[in-house]
Design a protein around this nucleic acid. Structure first.
Lengths: 237, 237
DNA sequence: CGGTATTTTGAGCAGTGTCAAAGACGGTGG
DNA sequence: CCACCGTCTTTGACACTGCTCAAAATACCG
């Protein structure tokens, strides 16, 4: 039987080898698992004393919003990802965390996590690297929003999602699920829902993507990467 | 006499108290100082085995670029800031670092820095928090680029720069230097140089900013914050 | 003082947003 | 199994923000 946090530990391990006792210490953390049937905000910008959140199943995303209510999504997370690392080590959360429908999320009190990170150098290093990779991805998104047009932006987003899903075995042969409505995809790419729709249509018409419902197929990954100006190094996989 | 790295140590200290021996260990690092008279790229995306760079005097900025050469600036740094933390702990640099004219930069071999960070828990924690704050600022920039119009974006940028300069005593009474051309300001805000010029003009016409050369004066900080939808929490100052 | 970089201005245009309505889809209860 | 309903996607017409190109004006620097 595998532990609910095994995907998280596997993920952490890619950022620096963990020792057996580190894995055991993580598995010994007190965990509560919450399930969400519909999209639910599970943490808000400004929260203090957050619990540590790890995605177990399904998907979640993180966002910020402007004073006028416009939302910007800046990460789409898969099982094994932690969702609010900054909130644990900074004084409060700087962003919201939302669960997508059918997500399961592990909730862990912050104190034992902080203690564990402080106590184990390999775990410290893994958390640190994971935060650095997260920031690197954020910078690529910044480049995407600031300097690329709608078509390139959406293609880039799809390439990144595919690459990240492939790494976890959630995409094979260019086939994957994108658990977002077009409105959410627009919030991630800085486009309106309407323009997101038109942009996806263009990519379909060009034969770069095939879509049936939430399932996408990429006939030629290299062609989509070309269209999305995508170079995977920034993911540090 | 103050050490070249004293601003860096002061900055680090805001992210978690350092002990006297930590400060001394940092001051004992082998440092070379480089001066740049004109804008110079001092590190590039993809660099491996980077040295650790700390800004001593003047300004520097960090950027990425697309395949077609468009540039996105994602941070403008002041003395005391480290410039390439990710490159030290990840396998390679994910972005460029550029010195602005008259900058002085401390260059430190990576190995002793990594050793020092590993050896001292307070330093580890300070580096970690500093990376988390950097990421938080990146997320706010993402929100800025994705969801705000040109006027709000530029006003927000100016508010952030003012707040960060005030914290270091480089701005008093709403007066500060912005060491960027309008082209660079545009690269930071995702606008063309021409539109940046028009946007600054509008802000001047509205009386929100006064500008003489590179020196800016903000008559009413609250008015500019209103215009820029600026809330300072994400800076964690 | 001349030369270069920077800023400003204008005119026209492309890309993206807005609004409104129709259509497709998927889940639910009967 | 079907009808219904809410959500999501698509489409069209149009407005507008921000981009492009070009040139003039200005500031900066040796």
């Amino acid at each position: 039987v595998t532990h609910v946090l095994s995907a998280f530990v596997a993920q952490l391990g890619t950022h620096g080898a963990l020792e057996e006792r580190d894995r055991e210490a993580i598995f010994a953390l007190p965990v509560t698992v919450e399930s969400y049937v519909s999209e639910t905000r599970i943490a808000r910008q400004g929260d203090v004393g957050s619990t540590f959140l790890v995605l177990i199943e399904g998907f979640a995303f993180r966002q910020k919003h402007t004073g006028s209510g416009a939302r910007q999504i800046f990460s789409l997370n898969a099982p094994g990802d932690s969702l609010n690392l900054p909130a644990l080590f900074l004084s409060c959360a700087d962003h919201d965390v939302l669960a997508l429908p059918n997500a399961k999320i592990a909730v862990i009190p912050s104190a034992p996590v902080i203690d564990l990170v402080s106590a184990s150098p390999p775990i410290t290093r893994a958390f640190f690297k994971s935060a650095l990779v997260d920031a690197s991805i954020g910078r690529e998104w910044l480049l995407n929003l600031g300097q690329r047009d709608a078509r390139t932006r959406v293609a880039h987003f799809l390439c990144e999602h595919l690459a990240r899903m492939e790494e976890r075995g959630l995409a094979v042969g260019g086939v994957f699920d994108l658990p977002l409505t077009q409105e959410r995809l627009g919030e991630a790419t800085g486009l309106t829902a309407v323009h997101t729709s038109r942009t996806l249509r263009k990519l379909k018409d060009e034969g770069l993507i095939l879509q049936k419902g939430r399932s996408f197929t990429i006939p030629s990954i290299s062609a989509l990467r070309e269209a999305g100006d995508f170079q995977a190094q920034y993911l540090f996989q």
